[in-house]
Amino acid sequence: MTIYLEFEKPLAEIEGKVEELRALARANPEMDVEKEAAGLQKKAEDMLSQLYGSLTPWRKCQVARHAERPHCRDYIETLFTDYTPLAGDRNFAEDNAVLGGLARINGRSVMVIGHEKGSDTKSRIEHNFGMARPEGYRKAIRLMDLADRFGIPVITLVDTPGAYPGKGAEERGQSEAIARSTEKCLSLKVPLISVVIGEGGSGGAVAFATANRVAMLEHSIYSVISPEGCASILWKDAEKMREAAEALRLTAQDLNELGIIDKIIKEPLGGAHRDPKTAIKAVGAAIEKMLDDLSGQTGEEVRNNRRKKFLAMGAKGLAA
C-alpha cells in the first residue's frame, strides 16, 4: 500500500477510485470500467506531475523523509556487488546507523559508507533512525583511512536527520567524532563522492559529504538545521516550518544554484519512492560518471582540489 503525504491527499482519492474500479471489474468481469479507470489514471498522473513539478521546500522535506523512499541499504544491494560490510570503531561499539564496507561498482573496488534509516519499526530502531553516534563517525573514519591506504575511492550516501542527540553520544565526544570525520574527508588522497539520497541533516551530513563531488537527488534536502528546529528558534514556533524551509534554501535546486553541490540527479515522476529501481539506477549512473571524471587526477590533486573547492565556499559569498 502506498503511503500518501498530506499534500498528496487529492491524488490518493483519485488513485483510490482507480483501484476500486479495477477491483470491481475483477469481481464482475462483465463490467467495462477500463475507459473510466484509464481516464482517472491519466488525471492522477497529470496531478502527480503537476504536484512534483512545483514542490515547495517544505513538501520537498516531506518527500525526502518519505518512509518508502529507498534507503542506503537499497542502494548498496542494487548498485554494488561483493558488498562486504565492515563493522566497529575499534574503540567502543558498532553503530548500526552507519553502514559501510568494501564493494564493487561495475567491477571497480570502492569503499561505500552511508546512513541507514531503516524501513520498518524494528529496523528503524536497530538503525536509530539514521542518527549516528560517535562510533558511527569513528567507524567511517576508520573505513576512509583504510580506503585511502589502498587507493580505493570512497562513496558516501547521506541520509540522516542529524547526529544523535543523546547522553552517551555527548559523553563519548559526538562533536569531536564529527570534526575528525570531516577532517578525514579533507585529507583523503582518493576520490570521495557523496550523494545526498534523502535528508542531509547538518553536521551529521557534513561529516560524510565533504567530498570532491556532491550530488543530490532531485527531491532531497541538505540543511544547517531542520526546518522545525529553525522555526522553533527563530520564529519561536515549530509550526512555522514551512516558512523556515523556504528561508533556509535547503532544496537540491537551491544548493545547486548556490554552488554548494555539483549535480542534481533526476527522480522518477512522483519521487524516488514511487519507482525505487529507476531512482537507484540513476544514482548508480551518476556515481560512475563522477568516478570517471576524477580518475585522471593524482592523489595530491584529488586532495588539493577538494580543499580548494571548500575553501572557496562563502569566501566571497556565492560561487559564480
Binding site: V206, T210, I225, C230, F310, G314
Partner: peptide
C-alpha cells in the same frame, strides 16, 4: 552555526577544518 546563512554557514565546518 548562523542559521540565517543556511547551508553557507554549514560549509564553514569544512572550511575551518582546512
Amino acid at each position: 552555526a548562523r542559521m540565517q546563512e543556511g547551508i553557507l554557514s554549514l560549509m564553514q565546518m569544512p572550511r575551518t577544518t582546512i
